[in-house]
Design a protein around this nucleic acid. Sequence first.
DNA 1: CTCCGCGTTGCATGAGGATGCAATATTGCC
DNA 2: GGCAATATTGCATCCTCATGCAACGCGGAG
Lengths: 352, 352
Amino acid sequence: MSEQVKRRIENGNKIPRRRVTSYDVAELAGVSQSAVSRVFQTGASASKDMRDRVFSAANKLGYRPNAIARGLITQRSNMVAVIISRQTNLYYPEVLVQITQRFSEHGIRVLLFALEHERDVNSTLDQVLQYRVDGVVTAVTLSHEQLKTLEHAEIPVIFYNRTHPEWLINSVRCDQEEGERWLVGQLVGAGHKRFAIISGPEDSQVSTDRTRGALQRLGELDIEDILIVTGDYSYASGRAAFAEIIHNMEPHPEAVIAANDMMAIGCIDEARETFQLRVPDEISVVGFDGVGPARFAAYDLSTVRQPVGRMSEAAVSMLIERIENPDLSPEKRVFSGERIRGGSARFTDSKI
Amino acid sequence: MSEQVKRRIENGNKIPRRRVTSYDVAELAGVSQSAVSRVFQTGASASKDMRDRVFSAANKLGYRPNAIARGLITQRSNMVAVIISRQTNLYYPEVLVQITQRFSEHGIRVLLFALEHERDVNSTLDQVLQYRVDGVVTAVTLSHEQLKTLEHAEIPVIFYNRTHPEWLINSVRCDQEEGERWLVGQLVGAGHKRFAIISGPEDSQVSTDRTRGALQRLGELDIEDILIVTGDYSYASGRAAFAEIIHNMEPHPEAVIAANDMMAIGCIDEARETFQLRVPDEISVVGFDGVGPARFAAYDLSTVRQPVGRMSEAAVSMLIERIENPDLSPEKRVFSGERIRGGSARFTDSKI
DNA sequence: CTCCGCGTTGCATGAGGATGCAATATTGCC
DNA sequence: GGCAATATTGCATCCTCATGCAACGCGGAG
C-alpha cells in the first residue's frame, strides 16, 4: 500500500480530502512521479507512449499540476503584481484589463493590489514580497527606499505613468508635459489670455506632471495670474472646482485646463448648467486621457489621448524581458499622446 | 558550515542569489527554523525574548515569509480568483477595485483573470485550478460542467450578477428584471406606446435578464411590436443601434430601453445629433447600471443603479464564509437597484 | 525536596513538483 | 550485427515553511 493511500485512510473523512497529486497520477499510470512532472512540462523529454499513459491517468483523476508547488521549486511564481490606487483615475481600469490579458498570453498571472490612497504603499509592498511575484507594474509612486527593497529582492519593476529623472528605473509613460504644452499652445494661439487650472490630487504624480507642463508653457508665453484649484479626478470635483474658479477669479477665465477628462466634463457641465456659459464660445475647456466619455457628443473634448494599447504592451514586454534577463539595463519609454482637436475649446487653425 | 551556505558558495554567482529563508534567520538568531516559523505566525507559542531575537535577525536580513511555501503546506493560498470578461460592461472596474480592497482587508489577495469573451472560460478555469485559489468570484457565466469541476476541487464560487434558477450555487446580483419592470412601468404609465430595446451581447446573462424583464412587463401591459437590436455595451454600439432602430421602425419609437447606461448615452447622442430629436420630449431613453456617466448633466439618465458597495461587500463576505466553512449551504442574494428618475425619460408622477 | 503542569523550543517530517545524474532503452551507421 | 550516440526513465534530493511530538525549564503544591 502506498504512503499516499495509507495516509488518506488514516485521515478518514475529518480532514478535507487530499487533492490529486503527481504521485497519484504516477501510481495509476504505473510510472514514476518524475515522469509525470516531465510530461506536464514543455520541452522535457518524454516518449509518446509515456505521454499517453500519463495524460490518460491524469484525466481520469482530474489532475492539474500545482502551480504553487511548482513555483516553490522553480523560483518562478509566474505571477506579477499590479499595483493601482483608487485615486489614480477612472481611466486605469481599461489599462488594467489590457495588461492582464497581455500577461496572460505569456502564461503570467496578475495579482492585483488596489490601494485606497497612494500612501498605503508599505504594507502592500510587504504582501507583494511575500508572494514572491516575478515582477511588478506599479501605477503608484514608490519612494526610493521602497524601490531599494524591491531591488534587493531582485524583483524588476515597471513604473506606469510615473518616473524619476535620476533613478535607474524602468518606466512607461505618456508624455504628460508635451501634451499639456500642446494644449496650452493651441489655446494661447487662439487668443485665450486668462487661464485656470484644475489639478488632480496632490500625491498624484500624473497630475503634477501635467500641471507643470501647462504652467511652464503658459510662462513661456507670458501668461500670468493663473488660478489653480485642486480636484480629485472625479466628475463632482470638476464641477466644484469650476464653481470655485468662477467665485475666485474676476474677470472670469477664458480657458480651463483640467488634469483629466472626467474633471473637464464636470467643468463643462457646471459652466453650462450653473453659469449658463456656452462652451467653447464663452469658455474653452480641455482635459487629458482621451478616455471613453471624452468622445461623448455632448462634450467632444479637446484633449490628449493616452495610447493605452501601446503603453500596456510596452509595460508587459519590458517586464517580461527583465524577468527573463535581470541584467537588462533600465529603460524609460515615453509615448506621445494623440492630439485631439475636439469641440470643447477654441484652438488655432494650425494642423500641428 | 550550514548546508545553505555551502550551496550558496558552490553556486557561485551564476545562479540568482538565493533568497533569504527562515533557515537563514534561524541561523543568525541562533534558534531553530521552527522557532522562526512560529514567531511569524499569529497565535503560536513564543517567548518575548525569542520574538525579539528573531525579529531583529529577520530585519537585518530583510526576511519575509514565503507565502507560496506557506500556502503549499497549509493548503490555503490566501488567494482568490476574480474572473471578469471584457464584454462585461465598463462598470465592472469599479466593482473589481472594491472587491480587491475588501478581500485585502481580510488578508486575501486577488488573482485577476480577464477574458476577451465569455466563451474563453475553459483555459482560464484550468489556470484557476492550477493556482489552488481558495475561492472564486466570477462575473462570467460558467457551464454546469465547469461548475462541477470547481466543486470537485472543493473551491467555493460566488456568481456575480449571474445565477441559475435550479443549480445550487452562491450568487450575488442586482435584480435586473425588477429594475427593468419598474422602468417599463414608468414609461408606459407616462403614455409611451412604441418601444425599442437595445440589448447587450448575446452571451451576456446580464443583458438576457434585463431584456427578459423588460419584455415581460411590456407584454403584461399589452405593448407589442417591439424592435430589439443588439449592441455590445459600448457607446459606439449605442449610437449605431439607435440609427438602426430609426431606419427599421416606422413610425419611430417613443421610448428606447438600453441594456446599460453606456449604450443609453450613445443612443441619446445619436438621437440628438443625427436625428435632431429632443430627449425626453420626442423620445425617452432609459439605461441601467447607474455608473458614473449616468449622472453627467448632459444626459441625466433615468436608470437603475446597482448598489455596487453592498454587492461587492456581500460577494466578499459570502466567499470568505465558505472558504472557512465549506459546508455552508448555498445562498442567493438579490439586491434591488436604486431607482433613478433622471431627465432622459418621461416618467409617471408616482412616487413609486 | 520531589512531582506536576504549563509554556517553550527543537527535531523530524511533509506539502507537491522539478531536476541532475545514472541507468536503461532506442536509433543510426558502417 | 556491433558500437557509439541519443532519447527515456527512475532515483534521490531540494524548494520553504508548518506542525505533531518529545524534551526541557521553571514555578508552585504537597
